[in-house]
């Protein structure tokens, strides 16, 4: 399996604060990956490192096995839509595509135009006069015009209304499926990701908490409900991600390596949202050291 994006012990600090630390992950080709975390978790930092806007302070980041920092050859393979979809506001979409064609060795102006025509966005109007959702679509069309093998999007839907957000994500999924482009999309709106992504990266407090294929992750995590007596964990639990206790019962979100056999416990499927929230919760929410699984 080809790896598109690979980071190893990657770190970046601003002043004395690490915005991203010890980040090691691999993104296989063809995936639509969600980069999830609260504001300030390091999502933008990771994306900016991947697209060469930032230089690592520790470790390495490799895109198509090259170092992206100011490497034009990599940049022409990567489409990037930055946060708040910055575009020259006095340019029309047509002029932005002309720019794309002049600044990239390979740029499919016709494809970009076709995309705008499909969703009915005027190409001759200054993009500053378009709505936020339309502007995001123009930014996506500009990024897709490069025919990138990797498309990175930083909170592309954060500032647009729910309907436009849905249209945008549908459009994104459409082109990703059509072209086979690997997509890495950061967001803090969880509901959007459940439908769209098949790979998950959870960042919290500058560190990676969870990486993996969504269906595999869903398969190995279970919500377990059992007696609240602090007794032994049921067999098959590898890691307790999050635990809640009342006098009568305990609720665990646990990673399992085998099916649950203990009749005192009941297992339930988890959703992507459950998973993300569990991994985003601070370690403090696991009060009993007994639940920790020895390494």
């Amino acid at each position: 399996m080809e790896i598109v994006l690979e980071t190893d012990q990657l770190g970046k600090k601003y002043g004395k604060t690490w915005a991203l630390r010890d980040c090691s992950l691999r993104l296989p080709t063809g995936r639509v990956a969600a980069l999830v975390g609260p504001n300030g978790a390091g999502k933008s930092t990771l994306l900016h490192l991947a697209v060469g806007l930032l230089r690592p302070d520790a470790g390495s980041v490799r895109v198509f096995d090259r170092t992206p920092y100011d490497d034009v050859a990599v940049l022409s393979e990567v489409g990037f839509v930055a946060q708040d979809t910055p575009l020259y506001r006095d340019f029309t979409a047509e002029e932005l595509f002309t720019m794309g064609a002049k600044l990239n060795r390979r740029f499919d102006t016709a494809l970009a135009h076709r995309r705008l025509a499909q969703i009915g966005i005027p190409r001759g109007k200054p993009v500053g006069k378009l709505s936020g959702g339309q502007r995001a679509q123009v930014a996506l069309a500009l990024a897709m015009g490069k025919r990138p093998r990797l498309l990175l999007l930083d909170e592309p839907v954060a500032s647009i209304d729910p309907l436009a957000r849905r249209e945008f994500l549908e459009a994104l999924m459409g082109v990703a499926a059509e072209t086979g482009t690997t997509v890495l999309l950061s967001s803090h709106i969880l509901a959007d990701l459940e439908r769209t992504c098949d790979y998950l990266i959870v960042l919290h407090a500058a560190q990676v908490r969870l990486v993996g294929d969504v269906s595999a992750l869903l398969a190995e995590h279970r919500r377990l409900v059992g007696p609240g007596d602090g007794g032994p964990l049921p067999a098959g639990v590898v890691q307790v991600v999050r635990a809640e206790h009342t006098d009568r019962q305990s609720t665990l979100l646990a990673r399992m390596n085998a099916a649950l056999r203990d009749p005192a416990w009941k297992a339930y499927d988890v959703t992507v949202e459950d998973l993300i929230l569990a991994y985003l919760a601070d370690g403090d929410s696991r009060p009993r050291a007994a639940w920790e699984v020895p390494a």
Binding site: H48, V51, G52, L53, V72, L75, S76, V78, F80, A82, Q83, D84, P86, L87, Y88, M99, G100, L103, N104, R105, R106, A139, L142, K146
Partner: peptide, 11 residues
């Protein structure tokens, strides 16, 4: 923020 757009083109 437009430097993020223009610095990530192929130039």
């Amino acid at each position: 923020g437009t430097h993020r757009m223009v610095w990530t083109q192929g130039v």
